[in-house]
Design a protein around this nucleic acid. Sequence first.
RNA 1: GGUCCCUUCGUCUAUCGGUUAGGACACUAGAUUUUCAAUCUAGGAAGAGGGGUUCGACUCCCCUAGGGACUACCA
Length: 469
Amino acid sequence: MSERPSVVTRFAPSPTGSLHIGGARTALFNFLYARHTGGSFLLRVEDTDRERSTPDAVKAIFDGLNWLGLTSDAEPVFQFSRVDRHREAVQQMFDKGRAYRCFMTVEELEVEREKARAEGRAIRSVWRDRDPAEGGNKPFVVRFKGPLEGETVVDDLVKGPVRFHNKELDDLVLLRSDGTPTYNLAVVVDDHDMGVTHIIRGDDHLNNAARQSLLYQALDFPLPAFGHIPLIHGPDGAKLSKRHGAQAVAEFADMGYLPEAMRNYLARLGWGHGDDEIFSDAQAVAWFDVADVVKAPARLDWAKLNHINNHYLRLADDARLAELTLKVHRSREVHLPADAVERLVAIIPLVKEGAKTIPELADLTIFALKHRPLALDAKTQQVLSDPETHGRMVRLAEALTGADIWNPPALEAFLKEFAAQEGVGLGKIGPGLRGILSGGAAAPDLASCLTALGRDESLGRLKDALFKA
RNA sequence: GGUCCCUUCGUCUAUCGGUUAGGACACUAGAUUUUCAAUCUAGGAAGAGGGGUUCGACUCCCCUAGGGACUACCA
């Protein structure tokens, strides 16, 4: 039937730091496009720079991708392990007269660089047409012998056709003087060998795409499709950096954002499907196409991320949120009761609509984890110091003791009824009761508070506050 | 400096020659109210500027301005 090879995309980070959200979005787009087309998504670690690549960075990147659920369909390829293959490719180019040894010293290179810039052209080595024997035993790099005329067109999936004059494209270093392959050579050979059909990456590589296209031609490799997506900027429009709050996906995780929320937000940043704002992973897969990616860079918008995270917090399983929230309480060194998890599972569904992140969920649940007797805040103490209010609270506690109505609607009705009996509005009861139950911390509505705390804990807190000493 | 990319409300975006330029977040006002939220209703808010092409441009072309990437023996 169809002879068209299936789509293969890849994410190819260099392990020199953490996984940034820009990279994460690139990975996401590659992942979505692969899933959308029924193809596969691969991972390659570009570790040819031995100086800067670290195992910690590799781990950080893998952790980030796993957290986001962007797992590759095959074992990750480590680029450095493929040096022999890279050298082999260079040999092929030598055989075809498409590569040459360049014995320029760094000083000579510097002079040529200046000259080329002044003349408005790309760097060319005098060794292009010289006999390598003249170089003797001096150190050399291997350069690509690029075409001097004509043009190279990168038919980009998102930017459209982009034309480059070949004379503007310099003779790339293929092999360094120590014999190791450079990035431009390695990507081309690896993408070809891995069967990559669609290269979706940041548009900081758009210029490289032209140079790499030349390498594909020289190697007789079929040209893949390119899709260069814009970078993500900070809220002020400048390149995203530390001062914008966060850039590593691990930081977003620590700040209490859910991976599914990040996926939705990141997908919507620089790509859209009509008016759809919130959508499932399945919908993203069904709808995504690189061709629909927006051409202009997008800015990170914390408010919108918060909004989306709030949405997914509402959908999330309460036990899962309880675990996440518990971690935050632990990190805050809260003295936790033995049944903390149970308490959290009970209270989270009542407060999560008001939370944007996990730390906020911690703020909203701390009242339920307090140990009796609670320390009451100044405001509550003041409210209770009023004899009338104090008396009313005592009557409420007594009435509550006799009632067997521990569910929100019944308790709500009960409180209203009690207020009516007392001849006052809820405003005369709410602040005091709330303060007693929460100690002054944020808490949901009263009926929910009572329900979540449970009869014993609720009555206990009332007793502590009203009958102490 | 050179090459290349980009430019619709504050932000993310829809529009693919004919719309009162739509939606979302944010914001403002009101409603609700026992805290903080949440929720509901209403509202303000955009085609960088200038030339063309066309009966008709946000949409196509050119110029200008602004932003960005690349210009490494980094990736």
